[in-house]
């Protein structure tokens, strides 16, 4: 039997590491997949290429996946949730002069906060954090920047702070460019972060695909959890053809502890309805789902199967 050809899109983020590891170590091949990994520079590229069939699957932001399937961003695109790849892993960094200020709302003034995409967990988590600190998210300006540009923007004083994934928060704090004030693990412990989605047509044509992807990625995430493997994995991931980030920074963020991305293993990779509901509830609060039936939103990515509806295809 020949391997099933699959194009998987990802960005250069630590959260995408299991995809590169699965390819390099032959885990996709072992799961019967001939996977080619496509590294994209923007979430918009991932969305467009999924929408027009140039990618079959991708490491995705939950809110963006929902926005795509509901037709809120570009062409309405049927997607299916194949895996929850990681939890936690984002950090909120404030400009040094703002950290610890009791009158945060006044101190921020009109300076914007940066997130990685309008439809991202980063945006939703930042809103949660601002609300808890007495700053109205509706009043705060939130803009999008590539995570690699956030530290520079902070240093220049053009943003008040940012919410980004690993290792960007840790790097800004290490370099003294800003103060890490909260990890997403502290704001919403165990929140779903990166998901793996498959295009509807591709998933429908291959009912075993999601499980095969979970097998391959599970083999990779199991390695990430072994302390003895970390330095070696980080060394491989650091190369310019892979994540193109400093190896020691990657190794530091691979522990899965504290605020680091926590990679799901084995059965944990199965998509969970509660995670999708978490995302939908927050997107609803942020005003992204005006006029949309929330049950419809849920079914757009997960379809219950079986008599009791407790499992998903």
């Amino acid at each position: 039997m020949s391997a099933y050809k699959l194009r998987i899109g990802m960005l250069r983020l630590l959260d995408s590491a299991p995809v590169l590891i699965a390819r390099d170590r032959g885990f996709f091949a072992a799961a019967g997949l001939d996977a080619s990994v496509v590294i994209e520079p923007s979430w918009a590229n991932i969305a467009d290429k999924l929408a027009y069939g140039m990618l079959d699957a991708a490491v995705m932001l939950g809110p963006l996946a929902l926005a795509m399937s509901l037709g809120l961003r570009g062409r309405a695109t049927g997607l299916r949730l194949a895996a929850t790849l990681s939890r936690n892993g984002n950090a909120i960094v404030l400009a040094n002069h703002l950290a610890g200020r009791a009158d945060l709302a006044a101190a921020i003034g009109a300076a914007p906060f940066a997130v990685v995409h309008a439809y991202s967990n980063h945006d939703l988590l930042l809103r949660d954090w601002l609300t808890a600190r007495g700053v109205s998210p509706a009043a705060a300006a939130i803009v999008t920047l590539p995570p690699g540009d956030m530290q520079t923007a902070l240093g220049r004083g053009s943003i008040a702070g940012f919410c980004a994934g690993a290792p960007w928060g840790a790097r800004a704090a290490r370099d003294g460019a800003g103060t890490l004030v909260a990890t997403s693990a502290a704001i919403a412990p165990g929140h779903p972060e990166k998901l793996v989605v498959i295009r509807d047509e591709v998933a429908a044509a291959n009912p075993m695909l999601a499980a095969a992807l979970r097998d391959a990625l599970g083999a990779a995430t199991a390695l990430c959890h072994l302390p003895a493997e970390r330095a070696g994995l980080a060394a491989g991931l650091a190369s310019p053809s892979h994540l193109d980030l400093p190896a020691e920074l990657l190794a530091d963020c691979l522990s899965g502890e504290g605020g680091d991305p926590l990679f799901m293993r084995g059965a944990e990779l199965r998509p969970a309805r509660a995670d999708l509901q978490w995302t939908i509830a927050r997107m609803h609060c942020a005003g992204h789902l005006v006029g949309i039936d929330l049950a419809v939103a849920e079914r757009s990515l997960l379809r219950p199967v079986g008599e009791d509806g407790s499992t998903y295809d």
Binding site: P41, A141, I142, V143, L145, D149
Partner: peptide
């Protein structure tokens, strides 16, 4: 150009209150 990493920033413009005109793909 799709090689620009800051294309995502453009997708956010629609929600900026000061910029009344929507920016759409």
């Amino acid at each position: 150009d799709m090689a620009r990493p800051d294309r995502d920033s453009l997708e956010h413009l629609r929600s900026i209150a000061a910029h009344q005109m929507p920016v759409m793909l």
